[in-house]
Design a protein around this nucleic acid. Structure first.
Lengths: 202, 202, 202, 202
DNA sequence: GATGAATGAGTATTCATTCAT
DNA sequence: CATGAATGAATACTCATTCAT
């Protein structure tokens, strides 16, 4: 009865992957089940063996591909390092992630659907808030130890992540050629540099 | 809302306004001509007296409501002022604009459609690039006069605008409650403060 | 805005008539919207201008063609007549109605859908109960005046109508050829005769 | 319910039983093979090892569960008894049968499908005609012996069975609560009583 | 025998677009 | 100008049936 759960899971993944690609390219509403089936190399009817509806397929993708994994993969032990190290690593990691095609697809679908679906935007908020909280806590600790000057840590964290995300947005979503002039290195350097100058005492 | 208009241009505007509202709420693909007609207080058939197709209606909105006007409305004479004044004014103006419902609607439609339509994303890029260019030039001038330390002015401008736009995105598009904790004043202060510390010599 | 409510009503009626014919022939579940549209001489899409769904179309038919009208058309003043006159008239009226194609169609749809849809069977019960009640009251009055012997009037009424309905069922629904041997006259005579012998004193 | 059957015949019966239950509840067209398989505790594919199609499964049920058995089970020797005994026994046997859930299921499927399928209605006619014939012959004999007055025996038989069937219909198919007020005893008494008064001389 | 994944032929429903009025 | 009935081309979804395992 549960003889090949592996195969079933594979097929589910295959459909979700195909759907994610199609959704990212055409948008959820414009993507037809035929598009998805073609992309997955199956027939449209089969989608309904694995998902009760097109909407449920989107939801499954959203749940499975939630950026929540991103924050979970963050090495907490790194927080023992000095600000410069932490910020530079964060900036580089995030930018590297943004260059990953798979992530860009997820971002496009999430962003596009978030605009018209609060349920999905709520799902995105969670990891964003978690990341902001984490950096905010780190900054607070460093302020208390005197390594950084006192300002609002939440605002600092929001600006730091916002700067990075705006770069990703401009490059990957808006496809703004002007945003592509610089390397990850240069961008990370500038963001970290500016943030640090804003935070270091004196 | 359904007052009898006096001129053709009025009726066109009325339809575009209604369509913008509907597109912002439901997305272009999900919005039906009936939705638009209801919102405009007319019947679906009438849309076709003013626009050849639904797609053309979107295009007309995109052309007419392009944020390009934004940058044109910028008071160039202000560039004679010192960096602190210029940056603070820019930050406050932009944030104020972002809080405007009308702008948020335009942003939603542009962002949502940009993701799947390069033509539209290209249209957004123009004012973004112009703004970045303008600020970049200003910063360059101030670097040459020695008022600001030498770094890459384009990166500085991108980070400055990116920080502001990421706030708008988080508050108005993602509806992240954590993004709403702060006032425009506080946010502008933080962004300007950090940017200036990153730019001022010593 | 309400310029041609007559035309709209006509088209609605036309669709309901066509649907009733198709439902009676193939059954609701087996009838396709294309069948209905073809029968009505329109395209399937147009059905949805007048009814929100196929189910709603059935409901509209059921509501509009409810046999409730039958009982309402009963001439109450007739109840002043003696039992023989009343029963014979009732039997003949009902049998005549049953021979009407339009009624048979309604009966088929109601019966067929009643089996699997309590909402519809409830709708049928109302006029059946009303008719039974009416005849029961009449019989009760006659029993009290001594014209008829005392028995349970409700049972008598149920048996009288049941006899008639079973004939209709056998002839029109089950298409039993043996049921067609007799004329309405003969059937009515037999039912009235038997009922009266069961009711008259001595 | 899903015990491992010992023989092919058992499995066939099991599927037919399950299908009958599902057909009676949802109707043939609305019932899916999955519904039937679930009810039978098997998988949809297995149905096709025992029946070539869904339609054939219905046909098999109709053939196997035909009410023809009913009339065959009638004790012919009973016809030696006087009219009152015979009619009362017939009425009580039939009403008892009608109260049986299994029979109601068969009735629902037959009735529902008869409406749109002459083949099935023909199958129902056979036992109905046989029963009518049997009773008609009995009444004829009694008329000739002078125990009953002369009328049309076929009409009498039809009315007698029709009265009983209309009760079953009202109670079990139309679910009319007003039909449930009386006991089998009362109903049988009334039908037999009225029929006898219609038949006895004087 | 038995499973259930897979197919393909529908079928209800939606909706941009047209056009007679 | 304005209406809204009407069309037709999609499109999501269903389900009887098949078949490799």
């Amino acid at each position: 009865m549960a003889r090949t759960p592996k195969a079933v899971e594979d097929r589910r993944e295959q459909i979700m992957d195909a759907a994610l690609r199609v959704f990212a390219e055409k948008g959820f509403a414009r993507a037809t089940n035929k598009d998805i089936a073609d992309e997955a190399g199956i027939t449209p009817g089969l989608i309904y063996h694995y998902f009760p509806s097109k909407q449920a397929l989107l939801q499954a993708i959203v749940d499975a591909r939630s950026p929540a994994r991103l924050i979970r993969s963050f090495p907490v032990e790194m927080l023992a390092q000095p600000p410069e190290t932490v910020l530079r690593l964060l900036a580089q990691k995030m930018l590297a992630f943004a260059e990953d095609e798979a992530f860009v697809r997820v971002l496009r679908v999430f962003l596009s659907e978030s605009i018209h679906n609060p349920e999905i935007s709520a799902l995105v908020s969670v990891p964003v808030q978690a990341a902001t909280q984490l950096l905010g806590d780190y900054v607070t600790a460093k302020m208390e130890s005197g390594e950084l000057r006192r300002t609002d840590p939440a605002l600092v964290a929001q600006m730091f992540f916002g700067s990075i995300m705006s770069v990703v947005l401009r490059r990957q979503i808006m496809r703004d050629p002007a945003g592509l002039e610089f390397t990850h290195e240069q961008i990370a350097d500038n963001i970290v540099d500016t943030t640090l100058r804003g935070l270091l005492p004196r």
